[in-house]
Write a protein that binds this DNA or RNA. Structure first.
Ligand SMILES: [Mn+2]
Ligand SMILES: [Mn+2]
Ligand SMILES: [Mn+2]
Ligand SMILES: [Mn+2]
Lengths: 220, 220
DNA sequence: TACAAAAGTTAGATAAGCCTAACTTGATTT
DNA sequence: AAATCAAGTTAGGCTTATCTAACTTTTGTA
């Protein structure tokens, strides 16, 4: 099925939002906020996507992706993350620069390109944000990741991704020299505001907020 | 200036058509044929591009790119050809596969991407079809493609394309094992009928007609 | 020079995406 | 159960890009 860039962006947004909901659905307003449009535009598009059997939707109710819709979403995410790896590994883009360009590259239509790119990159399993890359057949492994705020005291862990990928957050991380692979040990939790005292690398010690720790994903 | 993909494709078409005209201009109908639209669509677009100062145009007359228009065209061509090199050199796409995908990739907007890609590819001067790659500042060399019949004696060259793409010709090429990338050395020209004695690869030697040599494009 | 054919433009529609303003529905609270 | 408010849809309009049919200008040839 030949989808426009706009349709692809909607599908991807619905996927992301519904995956994080316990009932695997989402709402008109949530979609509007995420893709920076107004609710009426979303209503229009949901009608279109329903006709194309990509979403299950009745007006005034919440939306779910159909099986086809989910497959479409996963293929776009696959391309997005492969391009992110390319930009990061081959063209030395920094962590916070890759997303914006991948947002465009994910819409290039050529299966051959995707497969060749994947091979060229050495079949990477994770993108530069630590998110798993779906296989050509749509298999997507769950990354066993924790929020930094969930780590036990005294245990050293490694940064594998972020929850928030706003450029504000990514730039802050860059500023304090935290990236994929950075080793962090949680030393103490402050009862008052749940902020954490942590050490990076060789003893260099800082305090980070709960909000920060909730948005840094780590593996132990 | 932020241009749509459609506008970019028009600009590129106008560039290609006007470059091959002695007066550096082109016509509504020529553009329509090239980008597979109807003349009224072209008329509309020419009005739009005139307002944006990308073309010089008066209705019922022929159209020329402005200096800005030409710069825009060259930047798109630069991206197109760099992506062709990437697809060919890094992802092993064949010469006839690269164009279609590059047609999409040329519209990705990120100067940094273009510059990094160029560096990554080792600042190539020519694309896989032997066409020159403009520099970041818009400098553009002459094409280095010649007809095989124009080659000097004793010089080894490489096949980069064909002028005639009839299946008779392509089958003949296949039969004598000539394809893109084949190395050819011109040994002798027969005065009588301008046929050429050439050697392929390791000394394997043949005679080809003038008509053949006029339709094989090579770079030295 | 006249006048027919070709080249090009305008008029009027359509489709995709987006918007604001006005309305409807469903959920929450009393 | 009714009232209120948030969530969502519809109505109607705008822009970009396209088309066909009808018209106008330019051209090239008799
Ligand atoms: Mn996108
Ligand atoms: Mn990512
Ligand atoms: Mn293009
Ligand atoms: Mn080319």
């Amino acid at each position: 099925m030949q989808l426009s860039q706009t349709e692809e962006n909607y599908i991807k947004a619905i996927y992301a939002l519904s995956e994080r909901s316990p009932s695997f659905d989402t709402s008109t307003n949530e979609i509007a906020v995420r893709i920076n449009t107004k609710p009426p535009s979303v209503s229009d598009m949901l009608r279109k996507l329903t006709v194309k059997k990509l979403v299950t939707y009745q007006k005034y109710k919440r939306v779910t992706l159909t099986k086809t819709g989910r497959q479409v979403a996963i293929q776009i995410i696959r391309k997005h993350r492969l391009w992110e790896v390319f930009l990061h590994d081959k063209l030395q883009f920094t962590w916070d620069e890759v997303h914006e360009v991948a947002e465009q590259l994910e819409h290039i239509q050529s299966e051959k390109l995707t497969e060749r790119l994947e091979k060229y990159l050495g079949y990477p399993k994770y993108d530069p944000h630590g998110d798993p890359i779906p296989s050509a057949t749509g298999e997507l492994k769950e990354a066993k990741r924790l929020m930094l705020s969930e780590m036990e005291m005294g245990v050293t862990c490694q940064v594998v991704g972020v929850k928030d990928s706003s450029s504000e957050f990514l730039q802050y991380l860059h500023q304090i020299d935290v990236g994929i692979g950075t080793k962090i040990k949680v030393l103490e939790q402050i009862a008052f505001d749940h902020s954490l005292i942590v050490s990076f690398k060789k003893g260099h010690q800082t305090t980070v907020s709960k909000k920060f720790a909730d948005n840094v994903l780590v593996t132990s």
